[in-house]
Design a protein around this nucleic acid. Structure first.
Lengths: 187, 187
DNA sequence: AATAAAACTAAGCAAGTGCTTAGATTGAAA
DNA sequence: TTTCAATCTAAGCACTTGCTTAGTTTTATT
């Protein structure tokens, strides 16, 4: 007794995610989302409540895609080397054609004002910590490291991952590879 | 035979810089600049041409303030240790009250779209490379390091500096200190 | 005191923002 | 085949954006 949706919500979110990733949150207008997602504003608002809703859903989708990479590492079970591989994957992942997009989460952390959108910020912090925990569990796979050293190294690795997202916009490919090599040299 | 300006351009730019730093480029409107700088829109446009002009001038001012720190290090002449000190200074510098603002340049690199504002982007890249060169010259103060190793380490250090700017918004103070310690542990 | 150029104020412009709503279209159940 | 709620389109809402302009005030020089 009703009409069927003419679009698939997951499909249109993927497109929205791409736009947010390339463009940033604020710089992406609902009109642009309309075009990119290929659906009318009304549909956007009825499916995702508002622009923030589209963004939160985009972050969820991003998580899913990242989880794909994470899973590979978790299974490989080779500690620090696994993390290093993750860094290289990340470098590829954050590049589209010749455009370096960085990491959607890092970009957003930097853009979104803590107090202006606490809900989104909370989501982003959670995400960053999930990756950090992944690093911790991988570091534990290598023997003879005490707990506190592992925590420090995880922070250090996160810092370099966050940095790469920005560095990728300013530095050349070979510099980015240098960075990864030096980062893992003494771990 | 003309009226005198009722404001000092350097003074109002300092205020503008603070606002851009806290708020980001896009999120700062000319109306907000009016209030913060304490002058009328007309004056803003006649002194600095447009919003981008105010921003470029703000970056120059930021450079000046950073140069203050840089000079201390240059004179101290103690290589890697000098850079480490710079990192700690940066951490303080990027904090105002309890609010972590990160680095104005890093924030901007992340926000400004390469092709949308190439002029600003060029300025930011130059700035990043100036700091990198400072690192290179400090690294050379320590003996027995070959050229290529120094270049790699400079990239690595820049990556950690860029990272800190974002990490400071997501992690706690002690984690930030951990990061610096691990970064310099094996240099 | 008269002049005129620079600096000021404040109103206003077109275009863009996030979001809503009135009305036409669809399509599965009655 | 009729019904009617979900889905669509497109126009429009109030508000903000960067920037301009008409008109007033100031002030060093004549």
């Amino acid at each position: 007794m009703a009409r069927k949706k003419q679009y698939n919500e997951e499909e249109v979110i993927k497109k929205a995610m791409g736009l947010f990733w390339r463009n940033g949150y604020e710089a992406t207008s609902v009109r642009m989302l309309e075009k990119e997602m290929g659906i009318n504003q009304f549909s956007i608002y009825s499916s995702f409540k508002n622009k923030q809703g589209v963004f939160l859903e985009s972050i969820k989708n991003y998580k899913k895609e990242i989880n794909g990479i994470k899973e590979i590492l978790r299974q490989s079970n080779n500690g620090v080397l696994g993390i290093k591989q993750y860094f290289y994957n990340f470098l590829e992942f954050s590049t589209e054609g010749h455009i370096r997009k960085g990491c959607l989460v890092t970009n957003s952390v930097n853009e979104i004002k803590d107090d202006a959108d606490p809900e989104v910020m909370e989501e982003l912090k959670k995400f960053a910590n999930e990756i950090r925990e992944l690093f911790v569990s991988n570091l534990k796979q290598d023997d003879k490291k005490d707990e506190s050293k592992i925590e420090c190294q995880a922070d250090f690795l996160m810092n370099n991952l966050l940095g790469l997202s920005i560095a990728s916009k300013v530095f050349h490919q070979n510099q980015l590879e240098n960075i990864i090599e030096v980062t893992f040299k003494n771990l």
